[in-house]
C-alpha cells in the first residue's frame, strides 16, 4: 500500500504547515462556517414565509442541502490540488511533478489538502443531521451504505469538475472560470429539488453534468419520494454511479491534457 501511506504522509505535512498559523486558521474556519450558516438560514427564512417548495418541506430541502454541502466541501478539501492547479502551471511547478516516478494525477491530488474546509463540512453535516432528526427516514444498512456511496459519488463529481478545469490550464494557462457555474453554481442549484427547474435545465444537469444523479435522485430514494416522480426505481438507485463515471472521464481528459503540456520557457 505504498501510494496510500505516501498520500497520508503528504496530508500530514500539509496539515502541519497549515496549523503553523493557528489563529488565522481558526478565524477562517469560523468565517467559513458563518457564511454557510447564513446560507442555510436564508433558505429557512423562505420556508418560514412560503411553507413549502414544490411539495418539499424545509427539512427535506435541508437534507438535499446537507448532502451537496458535504460533497462540495470534502471535494474542496481533498481536491484542492486541482482546484488551485493554475498556479502550478504559472510557476512551472508541473515540471517537478513530471520528473517524479509517480503518476501526475496522484501527485497533484496528494500535493494539497485544505484543512480549513472542515468548518463548511461540519456545518453541512449538522444541517444533514438535524434534517434527519426532523424527518422520519427508515434507516437500514442498505440505506446507510447508499447514502455513503452517494456522498462519495458527489465528492467525485465535484473533483471531476476541478480536474476538468485544471486540465484546461494545459492550453489556456488560466483556469476556465466558467467552471464556477458548475461548482459553486452546482451547490446552489443542488440545494433545491430539481423539479422546480425547467426541463432543458434538468436534462442538462442530469445527462451532461450529472449533478442530479449524485444529489437529487439519491435524496429522492432515501426520503422515499420516488413514487411521486414516475421514474424507474432502479434508475434512481444506480444514479450515484454517474459521479464515479464522471470523475473517470475527467481523469481520461487529464491524461490526454498532460500530453499537451508546454512547459514555460524553452
Amino acid at each position: 500500500m505504498h501510494p496510500l501511506s505516501l498520500y497520508f504522509h503528504f496530508v500530514k505535512l500539509r496539515i502541519r504547515s497549515q496549523m503553523e498559523y493557528r489563529l488565522s486558521f481558526i478565524v477562517e474556519l469560523f468565517a467559513q462556517a458563518s457564511i454557510s450558516v447564513i446560507d442555510f438560514f436564508m433558505i429557512a427564512l423562505l420556508f418560514n414565509r412560503f411553507k413549502q417548495l414544490a411539495g418539499w418541506s424545509l427539512w427535506e430541502v435541508g437534507f438535499l442541502y446537507g448532502m451537496i454541502g458535504i460533497c462540495f466541501a470534502v471535494a474542496e478539501m481533498i481536491g484542492r490540488g486541482f482546484d488551485a492547479f493554475e498556479r502550478n502551471i504559472v510557476r512551472g511547478d508541473f515540471d517537478t511533478i513530471l520528473i517524479r516516478p509517480l503518476g501526475t494525477f496522484y501527485q497533484v491530488f496528494a500535493n494539497e489538502f485544505l484543512l480549513r474546509r472542515l468548518g463548511r463540512i461540519a456545518q453541512a453535516l449538522v444541517v444533514l443531521l438535524i434534517a434527519n432528526s426532523q424527518l422520519s427516514v427508515q434507516w437500514s444498512l442498505t440505506k446507510v451504505g447508499y447514502l455513503l456511496i452517494s456522498l462519495m459519488s458527489g465528492t467525485c463529481f465535484f473533483i471531476g469538475l476541478f480536474v476538468i478545469a485544471a486540465t484546461s490550464c494545459f492550453w489556456t494557462v488560466q483556469s476556465i472560470e466558467v467552471i464556477n457555474i458548475f461548482t459553486h453554481g452546482g451547490v446552489f442549484m443542488g440545494s433545491y429539488p430539481f423539479s422546480i427547474y425547467r426541463w432543458w435545465f434538468r436534462h442538462f444537469f442530469t445527462f451532461i453534468i450529472p449533478l442530479a444523479c449524485v444529489n437529487y435522485f439519491p435524496a429522492l430514494f432515501l426520503l422515499g419520494k420516488i413514487e411521486s416522480l414516475g421514474v424507474s426505481p432502479i434508475g434512481v438507485q444506480l444514479a450515484p454511479f454517474a459521479g464515479f463515471l464522471f470523475l473517470g472521464i475527467a481523469m481520461l481528459f487529464w491524461r490526454w491534457g498532460v500530453l499537451h503540456y508546454q512547459s514555460t520557457g524553452h
Binding site: R91, G92, G103
Partner: peptide, 23 residues
Amino acid sequence: QRKENAKHIGVVFGQRSHLWFDL
C-alpha cells in the same frame, strides 16, 4: 515510460527548486 525513466535520472533546474517550499 516517464515513471520508469524518472527512477533512473536526477534533474536539477537552476532557475527553480524541486524541493518543497515550506518543508
